[in-house]
Design a protein around this nucleic acid. Structure first.
Length: 415
RNA sequence: GUGGCUAUGGUGAAGCGGUUAACACUUACGACUGUGACUCGUACAUUCGAGGGUUCAAAUCCCUCUAGCCACCCCA
């Protein structure tokens, strides 16, 4: 048996990479428009970074990390998400010293040891953006609008924005207590998973899909009713800004986050087209993270987009252009002329394809057709001698004669 | 970690115990010896995920393994 790729690790073949480029370039364009600059950080970090940021009790840290001990006896981990590494770099290089406000974006592979399924892989890719140093709700709104803008840019209007507020360390404990009290009373009608969640992560019971639990939690207290004054005001303000920019969204007070560092505003772009993987992008505010990692007390907010999921939503659209010209040749002498012409055209930025194997003219023309080239030209004895050739427009068969001089050919192909 | 489903050529797939493994697409060549698209012809799996077993006979039945997909869980 030939060696195959690791489970959950996929090759992105050249036939699909044009779609990836399209997504990545759109993101770069939108993010840079908003003043974000790219930061490139390693894909491996000390294990402790993720334990301290994501949270020891989360599934990611408990069972999904690719961690191992390197030859220097250090525990290292393939990053399961991007924010932790970016914030580590932010602190390490004291990026806050010159200006606490930094707008950064990143893209690249992330790794989680999970059972693969549609839209979920062990190596997957994210494009993320972060703003540090701004606690004003205006930043929340800008980030949300940028995300929505990105989806509009790539032509997807299907994922819808859902927003919630998780409160802060001051008001969340009280909510948690209220929720637990509520759930305890309905303990018997909860599914086995939810009974377990009651102690591990009570908020999770809110998005359980088991009908009994949906029913049991129907009247559960909402986070939004338990926000402290400041958090409530913050959320109000975010909503106000979203109204000003006419950004469509819905409030989902049951939205839960998988990472511990989130505070206040959280959000997701949600789709119903990817089976059980409904989130194509998600993020939120993380006001305590930077100080928690040993940096200054600065707020932050950001999101990450799941590239595979976006690519899945875009479907099989072809984003690659077609060649401008196919050069067919009749014999070996003509190939010198053909090569000279091709080389000149390529240097002028014309996309040229040529026959490589000296096949029959019919084969060459068939190939020209298959490559969907705009024009074709046949170079044989006559053309080499006269220095002129007939260029054929493939769409309608129209022909036009042109001298075999790069500038002339370029002019001919313009029409 | 737990379920369910599926594994036949480059691809999509027929075949459900019996001599050459259907068909379609793709690819190659040709009909048209200097011009593609349509049409037509020819070629392309000694072999059915891997390994065992049952049988005179297995792609077809049984067992084991492996892989993939989907779902649970979790999440981008």
């Amino acid at each position: 048996m030939a060696i195959t790729a690791i489970k959950g690790f996929n090759d992105i073949l050249s036939s699909e990479s044009s779609r990836w480029h399209y997504i990545e370039q759109s993101a770069r364009r939108v993010f840079e428009l908003n003043g974000f600059g790219e930061i490139r950080v390693p894909i491996m970090e000390k294990t402790d970074l993720f334990c301290r940021s994501i949270g020891d009790a989360t599934d990611i840290v408990e069972k999904e990390m690719y961690s191992f001990t390197d030859k220097g006896e250090n525990s290292v981990t393939l990053r399961p998400e991007g924010t932790a590494g970016v914030m580590r770099a932010f602190i390490e290089h004291k990026l806050y010293a010159q200006d606490p406000v930094n707008k950064l974006y990143y893209l690249g592979p992330m790794f989680r040891y999970e059972r693969p399924q549609k839209g979920r892989y062990r190596q997957f890719h994210q494009i993320g953006a972060e703003i540090t140093g701004v606690s004003d709700p205006l930043a929340d709104a800008q980030v949300l609008n940028m995300l929505v803008h990105f989806f509009r840019e790539i032509g997807l209007d299907e994922p819808v924005l859902q927003v919630n507020s998780l409160g802060c360390p001051d008001c969340r404990p009280a909510y948690r207590t209220a929720l637990c009290e509520f759930l305890e009373k309905r303990h018997e009608s909860l599914c086995a998973d939810c009974k377990r969640r009651l102690s591990t992560n009570p908020l999770r019971t809110l998005d359980c899909k088991v009908p009994g639990c949906v029913e049991a939690t129907a009247g559960a207290p909402s986070v939004l009713d338990h926000l402290c004054g400041e958090c409530e005001q913050h959320f109000e303000s975010v909503r106000n800004y979203l109204a000003i920019s006419a950004t469509p969204y819905t409030i989902n007070s049951r939205m839960v986050r998988g990472l511990d560092y989130y505070t206040r505003t959280t959000f997701e772009m949600v789709t119903g087209l990817l089976g059980s993987q409904s989130a194509v992008a998600a993020g939120g505010r993380y006001d305590g993270l930077i100080s928690q990692l040993g940096g200054p007390t600065l707020p932050g907010i950001g999101f990450a987009i799941g590239l595979e999921r976006v690519a899945l939503l875009l479907g099989q659209r072809d984003f690659l252009g077609t060649p401008d010209l196919f050069i067919a040749t009749m014999g070996s002498v003509e190939r010198d002329t053909a090569f000279r012409l091709m080389d000149g055209l390529l240097k002028s930025g014309v996309r040229v394809e040529i026959d490589y194997e000296g096949k029959s003219l019919k084969s060459q023309m068939r190939r020209a057709d298959k490559l969907k080239v705009r024009y074709s030209v046949v170079l044989g004895e006559n053309e080499v001698n006269s220095g002129k050739a007939i260029f054929k427009r493939m769409s309608d068969g129209a022909i036009v004669e042109s001298a075999l001089v790069v500038e002339e050919v370029v002019k001919t192909l313009m029409h």
